[in-house]
């Protein structure tokens, strides 16, 4: 109580402080989600070494509606994380965030300008499109 640190609650709430804070939250979430998928995926594909039967048993579990939904989420996470990752790469190298000057009221920060905001929403939109295309491929065949 006395310490009054916001703690992990501060990480988990993406609704305050605008688009950049939302992107921070989603970058973390998708990073961890992709790591979980990646580990599971390496275990899943290892079934190949136990022959055709083991591989097809694995496919019977993963190539289901639930499995396809998981893959759609993975595709969305991949695209958002990659696109937003490129934005962070650029911004963290000091590009696209404006330059310091003489602040005037109402003190709009240049680093949170329209460019960065647009990149964030474009990343979200690309992820949504990729998920739709993924759904088309995954569910379109059957």
């Amino acid at each position: 109580m006395k310490e009054n640190r916001e703690g992990i609650k501060g990480w988990l709430n993406p609704t305050r402080y605008g688009a950049n804070r939302f992107a921070y939250w989603l970058q973390r979430l998708t990073g961890l989600g992709l790591l979980a998928y990646f580990i599971a995926h390496v275990i899943e594909t290892s079934n190949i070494v136990y022959g055709k039967n083991a591989w097809e048993k694995m496919l019977a579990v993963t190539q289901t509606t639930e499995g396809h939904i998981v893959l759609m989420v993975v595709i969305g996470m991949c695209v958002f994380h990659a696109a937003n990752g490129v934005r962070l790469y650029i911004a963290e190298h000091g590009k696209g965030i404006g330059r310091p000057g003489r602040p005037e009221y109402p003190y709009k920060p240049t680093s949170l300008g329209l460019g960065m905001k647009a990149c964030i929403w474009v990343s979200v939109a690309l992820a949504a499109l990729a998920m739709m295309y993924g759904a088309y491929v995954l569910f379109g065949e059957v």
Partner: peptide
């Protein structure tokens, strides 16, 4: 991680 919250609340620009 460039969450930008600092710049959002800074009262002095």
């Amino acid at each position: 991680h460039f969450a930008g919250s600092c710049s959002m609340v800074c009262p002095k620009g």
